[in-house]
Design a protein around this nucleic acid. Sequence first.
DNA 1: ATGCCCCCGTCCCGGGGA
Length: 256
Amino acid sequence: MRVASWNVNSIKARLDHVVDYCNNASADVLLLQELKTTDDNFPMQSFADIGWNVVSHGQKTYNGVAILSKHDIEVTQIGLPGDDTDEQARYIEANINEIRIASIYLPNGNPCPGPKYDYKLAWMDRLYKRAEYLINLEIPVVLAGDFNVIPQPIDCYDAKAWQDDALFRQETRSKFFSLCNLGYTDALRQIHPTSAHYTFWDYQRGAWQKDNGIRIDHFLLSPEATNKLLNCQVDKNPRGLERASDHTPVLCDLSE
DNA sequence: ATGCCCCCGTCCCGGGGA
């Protein structure tokens, strides 16, 4: 089974790219982030027309996550538990083919210090609790999406330029490693231990043309899912299209 | 030190992204 994750920076602006991807990328599951629209306004019909199912957790203007699949989708959680006052749509989770899969849009956190950084760290603590609950189920679990975390210097074209950024601060990275230390494997790093594989290039300053990228979109796999890991790779092709998202998809292949 | 670019919305500017 091939699972893809892609921060599309507006599902409406990227609809043609995403439908093409469903048709051509041989993915069974597509996790989306930054829909920037409500569930009512999600272009469901475009996916129904090509035989894909959709579950979305959106909101107006900002955030929003979805799970798309050719297979049946059984929703297990909408919204990240742990704070009833949190109205930001950043987490959705479902069972597909006996694998538990979450689409995650972790807060950016800039500027830091500040309330947005505090929210990011608190959100990561809540994600830790959910990840702990899921790993104790002892089933294949896939936590994937835009984590807004640069794990290591190799994941950044210029670590010095990012050292004080919310995506690369030691506090942020420590919380990401805590998540891994529950027993989750960073699938891209497992397959490619030492090479740079970026997933985001800023629209500004010709970052794409200069390959000034960062790796912030990740697949974290529970031990039962890691046992199924066949391959994990970044698909750079969509980033080169006209009117591209600033992120490109990550693909993860799991054995049946 | 700041903007560069791109998306959204009771919309031609400002907030947010990373």
